[in-house]
Design a protein around this nucleic acid. Structure first.
Length: 251
DNA sequence: GGGCTAACCTATTCATACG
DNA sequence: CGTATGAATAGGTTAGCCC
C-alpha cells in the first residue's frame, strides 16, 4: 500500500478513535434508484435466480457503502472548507482543564487506561484527551527551553561581568607596570620582573583566583558550572522522565 | 526483513478570547 | 481589529507485533 494511503487510513483510524462510540447506521434495502440492478429477469438469462441474488448482493453492498461513506462524512465532520456543518472548536471548561492539568502533573505521558478514564470523567472524546496531552507536552517543553535559556543567560552575564572586571584590572596593572618601568628596574612592593599575566595572579582578586589555580581557571570553573548541570543527556532525561519534576510553570 | 498499527512528535491551521 | 492562545489537523517518525 502506498505510504500516503496508509497514512490516510491511519488518520481515519485515529478519527475513528475520536468517534469511538460512533454506531454504524441501519442500512435499509436499496431504494428504487438502484432498481436497474434487480431487472435481471429477462429471457436471455439462464440463471435468473442466481443472477438476482448476486446482483442484489452487489447492489446492497454498493448502496451500503454509499450510505456508510455519507454517514461517516457526516459523523466525522471531515473538515472541509466549504461545507456548512463543520464542527466548531470549543474551549475546554475550567473544570476540565483543572483535572487534565492535575493528571498531567502526575504523569506527562498518557497511557490508554488513563486516557479512557479521563475521557469518561470529563465527558470528552479519548482523542481530545490525547490531543490535549500532546499540546500540553509541547507547551511544557517550550517552557523548559525558556527556563534553560534564562539560566544560561544569567550564567553568561556572570562570566561576562567577571571578564570585564579582570580586563579592567589587567589594564590598571599594566599602567602600574609602565609607571614602574619609568622608575627603572627597581623593585616596587612585592613585584619584580613580572609579566602582566602574573600580575593578575598577585592581586587580591588574583589571589582568590590562585586558590583554585591548581586545576582550572575561574572562567573554566564557572564554565563548568554553566555546562555541567545542563547536559543534553540531563535535558533528555527530564523530558523523558515519567514524572514531572520540573517546577510547575503556567502555560 | 517487511508490513501493519498505534502512539508520538513538530509544524501548521483555525476558532476564539481579549485588550 | 489585531494578536495571543489553544484545540485540532497534517504529515512524518518510531517501536512493537506478526508473518
Amino acid at each position: 500500500m502506498e505510504f500516503k494511503e496508509r497514512d490516510q487510513d491511519r488518520k481515519l483510524e485515529t478519527d475513528m478513535d475520536w468517534h469511538h462510540n460512533t454506531k454504524l447506521p441501519y442500512v435499509p434495502r436499496p431504494d428504487s434508484s438502484l432498481s436497474f440492478f434487480y431487472n435481471c429477469n429477462n429471457d436471455n438469462n439462464p440463471y435468473p435466480e442466481f443472477t438476482f441474488i448476486l446482483l442484489y448482493q452487489l447492489a446492497f453492498l454498493f448502496h451500503s457503502s454509499c450510505l456508510l461513506v455519507s454517514h461517516m462524512n457526516e459523523q466525522m465532520s471531515v473538515p472541509t472548507k466549504d461545507n456548512g456543518n463543520k464542527e466548531k472548536k470549543k474551549r475546554l471548561t475550567n473544570n476540565q482543564i483543572e483535572l487534565l492539568e492535575r493528571s498531567f502533573q502526575e504523569e506527562i505521558k498518557l497511557d490508554p487506561e488513563r486516557k479512557m478514564k479521563l475521557s469518561r470523567e470529563l465527558g470528552l472524546q479519548p482523542r481530545q484527551i490525547a490531543v490535549w496531552f500532546q499540546n500540553r507536552r509541547t507547551r511544557w517543553k517550550a517552557k523548559q527551553l525558556e527556563h534553560l535559556y534564562d539560566v544560561l543567560k544569567h550564567q553568561y552575564d556572570v562570566i561576562s561581568d567577571e571578564k570585564q572586571k579582570l580586563q579592567e584590572e589587567v589594564m590598571k596593572l599594566k599602567a602600574m607596570l609602565s609607571r614602574e618601568q619609568g622608575f627603572g628596574n627597581q623593585t616596587y612592593g612585592g613585584y619584580t620582573e613580572i609579566s602582566g599575566e602574573e600580575t593578575v595572579e598577585s592581586t587580591s582578586e588574583g589571589l582568590r583566583v590562585s586558590n583554585t589555580a591548581r586545576g582550572k581557571s575561574t572562567i573554566e570553573q564557572v564554565a563548568d558550572q554553566v555546562y555541567s548541570p545542563f547536559t543534553v543527556e540531563d535535558y533528555n532525561n527530564t523530558v523523558t522522565l515519567p514524572h514531572c519534576h520540573w517546577p510547575v510553570v503556567p502555560y
